[in-house]
Each structure stands twice: as C-alpha cells, then as structure tokens.
Amino acid sequence: MALVTQFITLEISLVDAQGDLVAWVEAALAEQGYPLRWAITHVDPGSRMATVEAVVTVQS
C-alpha cells in the first residue's frame, strides 16, 4: 500500500452546515480521504452551495 494524494472538488450546502463550518467541511472531505489542504473557492449566493477544492490522501 502506498500513500497517494488526490485533488477533489466537493459541493457543500451552507444552509445545511451545522455549527463549526470547518469541522463540517472536514467531515465531508473525510468521506473521500484524509484531508490535507482545502479551501472554499466559490459560493453560489442563490443556492448557498459552496465549492470546496481539496487535496486528500488515500492508501492505494
């Protein structure tokens, strides 16, 4: 098994985000891998959907 990095993009709902936004995003990223670096890079003001660009690591 080798450690690899993956670049991913997620859409998360700011309306649904409960409490700590950072923890909310990290929990969503953790479903894809171990979060390494991420940021919200776009917010749609109408839908309140936030785009997160992230690098996660996985064992492959």
């Binding site: 990095t5 670049f7 993009t9 670096r37 940021a39 890079t41 776009h42 785009t51 660009e53 690098v55």
Partner: peptide
C-alpha cells in the same frame, strides 16, 4: 496543476 478556481495545486 491548476484548479478551476485558478488556484494552483500539485502533488
């Protein structure tokens, strides 16, 4: 790499 946002990333 460069992401859609214009931010650079890489690995």
């Amino acid at each position: 790499r460069t992401a859609v946002s214009g931010a650079t990333w890489g690995t």
